[in-house]
Structure formats: structure tokens, C-alpha cells
Design a binder for these strands. Structure first.
Lengths: 154, 154
DNA sequence: CGTATATAGTCAAGCAAGTTGCCTAACTTT
DNA sequence: AAAGTTAGGCAACTTGCTTGACTATATACG
């Protein structure tokens, strides 16, 4: 049972892009969430952000929200129910389609979006402080290229 | 209900570090997982990697694995049970401590580790191909700084 | 030596965030 | 009007974790 491979494995983990990306993502999103919870939005959960990210002025259907978030309609339906229970959105009938539900921001939801933008800026600024502007710009570009590029030539 | 904030929100999402990081991380780890599944390890699940990442030659206790992975002993215990059921590790008594369980790689587990290193290299190479070596090096450094730095100055 | 305490592991229950399968109500097509 | 499609939601399951309570073994102390 020649398990010396484990030494290589542990060494590679230090420089593995997947792990580095996961760790950094976890830290950044965790920081933003923590600051939001501490700043007057204690009920917010990570998944809720997908709802706000898909909303557009005037109200948005659940199906559209689901598509934008990349989850099923069922999942988004439950998410909207929860976010509504916490008071950030309301849902009502779509006058243009009796089957559809339109999800809209409440005033408290507006406040949340303002605060979320501020907290995200704040965390980003901390990172800029630590790395410097050029490195953060380069980081953003690299991340966008990785996210966009198939990198998966079957 | 002044929800024009949603326009800002949607615009900010494009450059938000948290989202860029999450998208890139998802893509990279998803690619590695997909190639492993397609390359003779169809039963592997993302969480299993935490087991291999904590193993060291000669066998490792569940408590140690849990600490390294940053999860509870209960979670690691279940994980080891599952990975053992799929045939990548065995667990047996620790001769030095009657309470402890030593987890060891099976030959198939050794093969898996070799393949996992190869697949991770392969995905990394695709990224290097797309971005170029210097940008990937800079990316790694930036990610490490973000992961290491508290970025969270109370 | 025996009792107290700490440690390794597991069982059970539950939460968070999803999935698939199925179903109803409403709209659209023919 | 009948047939098909679409929006949404209910139920059950999956994955990956958590906390709480428990057993068995090991160690420390008087």
C-alpha cells in the first residue's frame, strides 16, 4: 500500500487553484454576510442574495428569478417565500398573467440592497487596501476569464 | 417603493469580487470533479476530497481528519464511512489507542490520488493556456493573500 | 488501586440549500 | 372547444453539514 502519494497530494493542495479559489470566495462572501447580519439584517441567509440579484425594478416573476439564479423554479419559489417572511420582498399576482407571481422589493428590501452594496464595497476596499489597486484589477480580470472561458475542452 | 437601487445592484454584481470568486471556484472544482468522474471514479463526491486531503502515510485518525478539514468529528466519521463504502479507504483499530480508528488508503485510493493530481494539473494547464503563466502566478498570490489576510479588521 | 475526568468515535435529529417527479390552474394554439 | 404549454407549488429525496446525547477507552490524581 504505497501511500507516499499522500505527501505529493498534501503538497499540491497548497497551490491548488480550486482550493485557493474556494478559500478566498468563502472568506469574502462570509465577510460580507457577517457585516450585513451585524448591521441590521440578522435574518439574511446566503441563498437570499440570489433573489435580490435577479430582481428588476417593477417586479419580477419567479421563473425569471430562477433562471437568473441558475436554480429550479421550486427552489426559487421556496426562497421567495422565506425572503418574504423576513420582510424584504412581497409577492403578488401579475395582472398580465393569472398564473404568474410578481416579486417586488419592500422598503426594507430597498434598505437591504443599499446596505449590501455598502458592505460589499467595504470588504472590497479592505482587499484593495491589502493588495493594491492594480493587483485587484488583475484579479478581477483573471477571474472573469476563468468564469467565462470554457476551460473544459471535452 | 423606490426600487431603482436594483439597477445599481445588478450592475455591481458584475464586478463583485465575491461573485467572481464563487463563479471561478465553482467552475474549477466542477471541472476537476467532472473529469475524475469520467475518468474511472464515478462515485466520487466533492466532500470526499476533504478525506484524502487530510490523510497522511501510515494512517490517520478521524479526529485529525476532522480538524484538518474544519468539520466536526461526526461529519468526518460519516464521510469516512461513505468513502470506505466506495472502496478508496479502509478503517481499522489503532493499536496504540483502543478508542481510535485509523483510516488508510486502499490501492484504489492510491490510484484515485494519482488521478486527482493529474486532473487538477490538467485543469490548471487549461487555465494557464488561456491566461498565461504570469497571470496565473499573480492570481495564486492574490488568492493566497486574500485567504490569509484577515480582511476583517474589527 | 479506584475514582474522576478527558478523549475518540458514533447515533439521532435537524437545518440549509438544493434536486426530481408530479400536480393544478391559467394561458395559447389550432 | 380540445390539446398542449407554461407558471407555480407540494412532496419526497439528496448532500453536506450541525448540535446534543451517549458509550467505550485512556489518563490523572488522591
Amino acid at each position: 500500500m504505497d501511500d507516499r502519494i499522500l505527501l505529493d497530494f498534501a503538497a499540491a493542495a497548497q497551490t491548488d487553484l480550486g482550493q485557493l479559489l474556494n478559500a478566498a470566495a468563502h472568506r469574502v462572501t462570509g465577510d460580507v454576510l457577517a457585516r450585513l447580519r451585524q448591521g441590521g439584517h440578522p435574518d439574511i441567509r446566503p441563498a437570499y442574495l440570489a433573489v435580490f440579484g435577479g430582481l428588476q425594478p417593477g417586479g419580477t416573476r419567479i421563473t425569471v428569478l430562477a433562471e437568473r439564479a441558475g436554480v429550479t423554479r421550486q427552489a426559487m419559489s421556496a426562497l421567495v417565500r422565506d425572503v418574504e417572511a423576513v420582510g424584504y420582498v412581497t409577492s403578488g399576482p401579475d395582472p398580465a398573467d393569472g398564473r404568474a407571481v410578481l416579486v417586488r422589493l419592500t422598503p426594507r428590501g430597498v434598505t437591504f440592497c443599499v446596505d449590501a452594496l455598502a458592505m460589499s464595497d467595504s470588504v472590497t476596499n479592505d482587499i484593495v487596501q491589502a493588495l493594491g489597486d492594480p493587483r485587484v484589477d488583475a484579479l478581477r480580470l483573471a477571474l472573469r476569464d476563468i468564469g467565462a472561458n470554457p476551460a473544459d475542452p471535452r
